[in-house]
Design a protein around this nucleic acid. Structure first.
Lengths: 140, 140
DNA sequence: CAGGATCCCCCGGGATACTG
DNA sequence: CAGTATCCCGGGGGATCCTG
């Protein structure tokens, strides 16, 4: 099984960058897979990626409406993170009232494609997992 | 970055995405992918799954040594969760000193298989993501 | 050896109020 | 409309000590 999970070569950078990584992106120096999971696994990133993949292009308020339960703050934070990783683009139109549109980059789209097999696996195995959980509850 | 309808054909990825995440995934909270991601996305589950996949069978102390940085408590908690979901088995041998061995179930193995494409994607795109982050940091 | 039980800290993330 | 700026709480997870 060729799943690499371990050390990863470090890129040279300014102290500013290292400081930044040591805080916010601490997992990055350990393993790229871990980091990817870390990125898509926070409470909202995956939702944003999937909705953007479906719609192709969306405004802030649209996403706020569509993604049920997300707060304004978390939508902003999530979008900033995804943009920082180059997974989505943010386009501001100089209009009044302001209009901002988000959409997946090609890298973002390719990430979404990797989620499809996982999605299909989840659909196939969800019932068994739920049953397994129930059994353990009844035993405990 | 503009999607011109007609003149330029939709990308293969975009088409697949819209097909896959069409109606049945309309409401995210009913999407089992979310649950799966939630399970493998905690700080250690994926490490455990991958190490077990590589070794086939491991004892508690072995995993504690191999998985760098994991605490005793979190290894225990993680193993319990994975067992509860039916992704790993826990076998206790009536010996002194006690011996406990863990290994992936067939479902656990099949989940690991789904992670491989994701792993490969992560390795392919890690550098670009890092560069993107650095650029954003330098911009301020 | 393989954990249980506790204590405690940090931070992800919700609620709310304000702005260009 | 599309965000910032604060405040605040719950729980994920580390450190430590204890046990069959």
């Amino acid at each position: 099984m060729e799943v690499t999970i371990g050390s990863k070569p470090q890129s040279e950078g300014s102290r500013k960058i290292k400081e930044h990584f040591s805080d916010k992106h601490a997992t990055i120096k350990h393993c790229p897979v871990t980091d990817i999971i870390a990125r898509i696994s926070d409470k909202w990133s995956m939702h944003v990626i999937i909705f953007l993949g479906k719609a192709g292009k969306m405004r802030f308020s649209e996403m706020k409406k569509e993604i049920e339960g997300i707060s304004q703050r978390m939508l902003t934070v999530t979008l900033r993170n995804l943009e920082e990783d180059g997974l989505i683009t943010r386009t501001v139109y100089a209009e009044v009232p302001p209009r901002v549109e988000y959409q997946l980059t090609s890298m973002g789209e390719s990430l979404l494609l990797q989620l499809i097999p996982l999605s299909e696996w989840a659909n196939r195995n969800m019932e068994q997992i739920l049953r397994s959980r129930e059994e353990h509850i009844l035993k405990g």
